Simulated assay, not measured.
Amino acid sequence: MGSPSQQLSLPNPEMTPTSKSSSPYDQPELTEIMAALERPRPSLSHSFLSPDDFRVFKKYDSAAQDEADVLANVIPDIIGQKEADPLPARNTVFNNLKLLTDGTIKPAKPDIYFGACPGELHKSIRDELAGQIIPSTNTSKPMAPNFFMEVKGPWGTQGVATRQACYDGAIGCRAMHSLQSYNEEQPVYDGKPYAFSTTYQSGGTLSLFAHHVTAPTITEGLPEYHMTKVYGWDVTASLDNLRSGVAGFRNARDLAK
């Protein structure tokens, strides 16, 4: 069903993910997350996701000519609009956040992201942490983004999607970390992921990543952001794979919420 977890690190401000050997310092705690991802979902039982549904899903995936087709005709079956609460924001430029890098990389623009409703946080805290948690100048968009999806059509590449997800996840880590550490004497580094990203490559490849932050490694340094591949599914290979992948996606989204 899933692929072994793989570790990528994202030292700030270097935004290109690099391979890094696992260590107690940077390895996230995934035990609870793995259990949550494998939780059964009644909405994906045979009566709600049938062999006919699977054939239609495969048809739309194989017929997709570009990323827009995948986003319009394939991704809604994975997201499950009726289950999404709050609704996702789409194609949003993160133009209201403080730079995460040295300015050489454009603001993130995830295909889809989930966060919290702005009204759920006191305005004074929203204003104080705006540069970390309010992604868009359209302040009605979800805040504190911590679940992302990057999509590629038949001519896109998985490598690009993974790099975009890495960038998204670092932003999500920073948002969640700023909230966790608010009014604390010292920043909180507990090694647990609070941000997640997914990628979908036309042809059926759905991947799920967890993101966590660790303390600076040098005095006056910056926090480091890490990306760990948790699962991967070929959701067009079989109905069971589709059910497992969609369940993992939705369970991760619920966990992020």
Score class of each variant (00 low, 15 high):
235 V>M: 08
234 D>E: 11
205 T>I: 11
232 G>V: 06
217 T>P: 01
185 E>G: 09
187 P>V: 09
213 V>W: 00
233 W>K: 04
233 W>C: 08
186 Q>V: 15
212 H>G: 00
219 T>E: 14
213 V>I: 14
234 D>L: 12
190 D>Y: 02
186 Q>G: 05
236 T>D: 11
219 T>Q: 14
208 L>T: 02
191 G>K: 08
213 V>G: 02
210 A>C: 11
216 P>R: 05
221 G>W: 07
214 T>L: 08
203 G>H: 09
231 Y>K: 15
213 V>C: 07
199 T>V: 13
192 K>R: 15
196 F>R: 05
226 H>F: 07
196 F>G: 00
203 G>Y: 11
190 D>K: 02
211 H>R: 01
227 M>T: 07
220 E>I: 06
189 Y>I: 02
188 V>R: 10
196 F>E: 03
226 H>I: 04
237 A>K: 11
218 I>K: 15
212 H>V: 03
236 T>G: 08
224 E>Y: 01
189 Y>V: 01
231 Y>F: 11
207 S>P: 04
223 P>N: 04
193 P>M: 07
226 H>S: 10
220 E>H: 14
197 S>Q: 09
225 Y>F: 14
210 A>G: 12
210 A>W: 09
217 T>N: 12
210 A>F: 07
235 V>Q: 06
214 T>K: 10
187 P>M: 10
222 L>T: 11
193 P>V: 04
226 H>T: 07
225 Y>H: 15
235 V>R: 04
234 D>I: 05
237 A>S: 15
206 L>W: 00
208 L>Y: 00
204 G>K: 01
211 H>L: 01
228 T>F: 05
197 S>I: 07
225 Y>D: 11
232 G>M: 13
210 A>Q: 09
199 T>K: 07
231 Y>M: 14
198 T>H: 13
232 G>P: 05
231 Y>V: 12
211 H>V: 01
189 Y>Q: 04
212 H>E: 05
230 V>T: 12
207 S>V: 11
197 S>D: 10
221 G>N: 03
216 P>S: 07
190 D>I: 01
223 P>E: 01
233 W>M: 06
228 T>Y: 05
186 Q>R: 13
224 E>L: 04
214 T>E: 11
186 Q>E: 15
190 D>C: 02
229 K>M: 12
195 A>Y: 08
187 P>F: 08
